[in-house]
Amino acid sequence: MKERQRWRTEEDALLRAYVKQYGPREWNLVSQRMNAPLNRDAKSCLERWKNYLKPGIKKGSLTEEEQRLVIRLQAKHGNKWKKIAAEVPGRTAKRLGKWWEVFKEKQHRQHNETSKAHQPIEDSNYDRILENFAEKLVRVRSPLIMPASNAPPSPVLPPWLCSSTTPSPSVTLSLSPSTVSAPPAVGSVSRAQSNPIAELLECSRDLEEGHRAWVAHKKEAAWRLSRVELQLESEKCYRKREKMEEIEMKIKTLREEEKGAIEMIDAEYRDQLLQLRKEAEVKELKLAEQWAANHLRLTTFLQSLQNKSSAPEGSGR
């Protein structure tokens, strides 16, 4: 037989019958005492009984309340699952340990998927990106072609942001053909505008990268917030449970005090009743003694009268 073969229903029934008759001990004597072959070692029998067949063990997935309780206890005790299982009724240490490993792996996988594209940036890095973009937008740029000595100074903003350099359609239509100046060469215009367009594209890429990093940071913050909410919910359930246990202990104490007070009152009245009975018995005994004394006196008196009445008759004869 294989060492890790699954337990059959007949073996479970045999193990239950053994525990019912002999108790959960001496597992290596199951086959000998039950007169039935059970090719299992003592450790396997113990684990089967403790983790699957013992009455009161809950089977199936953990409820939300149990999950919150396990998370809070794990944060408090660490991976001491026997100690944690003692505070989670119906769950074994082996079952709780397996659930925690699956839960931790799932949380780790979600965290990796959230931070896979970009690592979350700090607020200072995001502020630095905005400052660089602002500096590139408003700083004074030196023109590619040096202006003449009598030419006006270059504008602060780049040419592609200066609306005054581009005539409006109405002004263009009002000018005569003789006064319209010849358009600049295509090569010079492209050279003059290539640098601002490149900087604009660079700034756009920086903003896009910053936006993606901010989205990743927001997702991570939401994930951390959900973890905190889960821990707070488990803490709330634990405090409610503690409060209910405290109230139940107080109610139990009050009931014990009530029971003790009632027993004390009953004992006092019982003692009083016994005392009254004793006093009644003493009075009855005294009355009986008095009656006996009176009866004796009466009997003596009657005898004396009888003797007196019989004495003259004898003397007369």
Results as ranks from 00 to 15, higher is better:
235 E>F: 12
131 E>H: 11
148 A>P: 03
150 N>M: 06
232 L>E: 02
219 K>A: 06
147 P>N: 04
233 E>W: 00
186 V>L: 13
162 C>I: 13
128 R>E: 10
132 N>H: 12
153 P>I: 00
224 R>A: 15
236 K>P: 02
140 V>L: 08
200 L>Q: 05
190 S>E: 12
195 N>G: 07
211 H>G: 10
163 S>R: 07
209 E>I: 10
194 S>W: 10
163 S>V: 07
156 V>E: 14
174 S>A: 11
142 S>W: 09
161 L>T: 08
182 A>D: 14
146 M>Q: 11
175 L>A: 02
172 T>H: 05
178 S>K: 15
168 S>V: 09
219 K>P: 00
180 V>C: 11
217 H>R: 07
141 R>H: 14
132 N>I: 08
155 P>Q: 03
234 S>V: 03
178 S>P: 05
208 E>S: 07
118 H>A: 11
148 A>R: 14
228 V>P: 01
130 L>G: 03
118 H>V: 05
147 P>T: 01
141 R>V: 13
190 S>A: 14
146 M>N: 11
142 S>Q: 15
131 E>C: 09
192 A>V: 08
216 A>K: 00
160 W>K: 15
221 A>H: 07
162 C>V: 10
143 P>F: 01
152 P>R: 15
131 E>N: 14
126 Y>Q: 03
154 S>W: 15
158 P>E: 15
179 T>D: 12
120 P>I: 00
139 R>N: 08
144 L>P: 00
160 W>I: 15
172 T>F: 08
211 H>V: 10
150 N>D: 09
225 L>F: 06
124 S>K: 14
184 P>N: 07
161 L>A: 12
136 K>G: 10
164 S>V: 15
230 L>P: 00
179 T>R: 12
168 S>M: 11
228 V>G: 03
186 V>K: 05
120 P>A: 01
199 E>Y: 12
210 G>Q: 01
189 V>R: 02
160 W>M: 14
135 E>D: 13
206 D>L: 03
186 V>W: 04
155 P>C: 04
153 P>L: 04
190 S>P: 01
218 K>V: 06
139 R>L: 10
124 S>T: 14
191 R>S: 13
229 E>V: 00
122 E>C: 04
206 D>A: 04
189 V>K: 05
178 S>F: 07
205 R>V: 03
186 V>E: 02
177 P>D: 04
218 K>F: 05
166 T>R: 10
198 A>Q: 05
209 E>A: 14
132 N>Q: 12
181 S>F: 05
129 I>C: 00
171 V>S: 13
235 E>Q: 10
189 V>G: 01
177 P>N: 08
214 W>D: 00
200 L>Y: 04
222 A>C: 08
157 L>D: 01
163 S>I: 08
167 P>S: 09
191 R>N: 15
218 K>Y: 07
220 E>W: 05
222 A>I: 07
166 T>E: 07
206 D>P: 00
177 P>E: 02
219 K>R: 11
170 S>E: 15
213 A>H: 03
236 K>A: 09
162 C>K: 12
162 C>L: 12
189 V>T: 05
207 L>A: 06
220 E>P: 06
204 S>E: 07
192 A>Y: 03
209 E>D: 13
156 V>Y: 13
126 Y>I: 02
215 V>N: 01
212 R>W: 06
122 E>A: 03
219 K>T: 02
179 T>P: 01
225 L>I: 07
153 P>Q: 03
156 V>Q: 15
214 W>Q: 00
224 R>P: 04
